[in-house]
């Protein structure tokens, strides 16, 4: 009973405080307090996550499951970053407290942590992100196959946008006088019609639905009508 009631009370109180502070500036500090609580919880919960990461990978290594070498690399990297980060190895001394090593900054590449972030993690992240271009091409190829009316509409719209983004769009339509009845067929006009009329209208409709859905879901949670997110105890 208490396992559900107490979390529900905390949830309701936090939700109401956040709403209240949005409309009443005098209570702004209350909402900052609630956000701090969450940050503390998330910080403590990270220990759980790190423990889980260690347990899963150690188990994989000890049982020599396929790909155990990757787990070993994960654990070595985890340990190295933890040591370098906590010891602030190579940290740039703080201007106010140059004698206190732990007050130093790790943002620059002079620090071990900053160096690893800049020259190891960032390139790896960029590599993963760069793959997105190929996924976009493959998804577009599949989505633009004109197999039904909706797909034909999608294909036509995509064709217009692709055409007007390149020089060919302007080259093909620049002969249409700007003050004529057919000026809407010029590349820049077609692009504006698609992006500023159809796309904006559709996106706003979705956004209004999302806003109402968020409000209704929040209300269900705050009032305890929907308790699915709470512990079933």
């Amino acid at each position: 009973m208490l396992q559900r009631t107490i979390p529900l009370l905390i949830l309701s109180a936090s939700g109401l405080i956040l709403i209240l502070s949005y409309f009443s500036p005098i209570t702004e500090t209350w909402s900052e307090q609630v956000v701090s609580w969450f940050n503390i919880l998330a910080g403590v919960a990270f220990v759980l996550g790190a423990g889980n990461l260690l347990a899963v990978n150690l188990e994989k290594i000890s049982s020599k499951r396929p790909g155990w070498a990757y787990s070993a690399i994960t654990l070595v990297s985890f340990g190295a970053m933890l040591v370098v980060g906590l010891s602030k190895w190579g940290a740039v001394p703080d201007a106010k407290h140059p004698d206190v090593h732990l007050a130093g900054s790790q943002d620059s590449t002079q620090a071990g942590y900053g160096w690893a972030y800049e020259y190891v993690l960032s390139p790896l992240t960029a590599t993963m992100f760069a793959l997105l271009a190929f996924y976009v091409a493959s998804a577009a190829f599949r989505a633009f196959r004109a197999k039904n009316f909706e797909a034909i509409l999608l294909l036509g719209t995509a064709f217009i946008i692709l055409l007007v983004q390149i020089a060919a769009g302007a080259f093909l339509t620049n002969w249409i006088p700007e003050d004529s009845f057919f000026a809407f067929l010029r590349a820049e006009s077609l692009k504006a019609i698609v992006t500023e009329v159809f796309q904006t209208a559709g996106m706003r409709a979705i956004l209004i639905g999302i806003a109402l859905g968020t409000a209704a879901t929040s209300l269900r949670l705050i009032l305890g009508i929907d308790r699915s997110a709470l512990s079933k105890g």
Partner: peptide, 27 residues
């Protein structure tokens, strides 16, 4: 969008939660 948020109420099948979806429609 909103279907995603309505899913919780839809899957629960509880009258209270389904009512909240209808209330959302007024908005």
């Amino acid at each position: 969008g909103e279907e995603f948020f309505a899913a919780s109420a839809y899957l629960s099948g509880e009258r209270d939660q389904l009512g909240s979806i209808k209330g959302q429609d007024v908005g």
